[in-house]
């Protein structure tokens, strides 16, 4: 791995825990909150944005075509997407890893777990993609990740029109929400199951409490 990148990455990670004394300005970048809600439409659109842009370089090696029904894609849509791939094949980047390695000096990371692999991962992804800026003429960098190799694929830094910018903002949030799902596809099942388990335990504990109180009432 390239030495400067490594150093930059170290600096970035240091800045994330915001305790380093020698971190660069990026330490001051505050993660931005997502205002879109998690719903089928946003997840679905987030997927298509991923599919059209991010997927040029980034794999989702733990997501199979068949999983996409969870973000609201129909069987027909999945069949169109996968072409000759099987339903249990995983989503691979369009660019072969060797080509990507040549272009960026590094294989772009898999995104399946990105939303979990950073603190506040969903917000991190959203902030990262909207933190590009023009450093000097036609040279771009990222406030959150100085020296990032990924280009500003959403063209956030060069979009002037506030309406267009707002649209990009929305699409980036949808991608972040989609990647949050990709990292934690059982979230909805987990949360709905939790309601039942905890409600049950509360009933049981309450019964145990009354039983305990009655048994102990036998003692003076």
């Amino acid at each position: 791995m390239n030495m400067t990148l490594r150093i930059r990455l170290v600096i970035l990670l240091l800045s994330l825990v915001s305790v380093s004394t020698n971190a660069s300005a990026s330490a001051d970048v505050e993660l931005r909150d997502i205002y879109l809600e998690v719903n089928a439409q946003n997840l679905r659109e987030g997927f298509y944005t991923y599919n059209n842009l991010c997927r040029l370089c980034h794999n989702l090696k733990y997501i199979k075509y068949s999983n996409l029904s969870d973000v609201g894609l129909s069987k027909h849509e999945i069949d169109v997407l996968r072409g000759t791939n099987g339903v249990s094949d995983t989503l691979a980047a369009s660019m072969p890893p060797s080509v990507a390695n040549q272009a960026f000096g590094k294989v772009p990371p898999d995104l399946s777990l990105m939303a979990k692999a950073r603190k506040n991962g969903t917000h991190y992804i959203y902030t990262l993609l909207t933190s590009y800026y023009e450093k000097s003429e036609a040279v771009y960098d990222n406030h959150l990740f100085q020296g990032i190799r990924m280009p500003d694929i959403f063209e956030y830094s060069v979009t002037e029109n506030p309406k267009d910018k707002e649209l990009i903002d929305k699409r980036v949030q949808q991608v972040a929400l989609f990647l949050e799902w990709a990292a934690d596809p059982k979230r909805d099942e987990r949360k709905s199951m939790g309601v039942f388990v905890i409600a049950y335990l509360m009933v049981l504990t309450l019964l145990l409490f009354f039983l305990k109180r009655r048994i102990w009432a036998n003692l003076q």
Binding site: L204, L207, F210, R214
Partner: peptide, 13 residues
Amino acid sequence: FLTTATGAVAGAG
């Protein structure tokens, strides 16, 4: 009743 109910709920769990 209380003992039986608690036992039944715990057993079901």
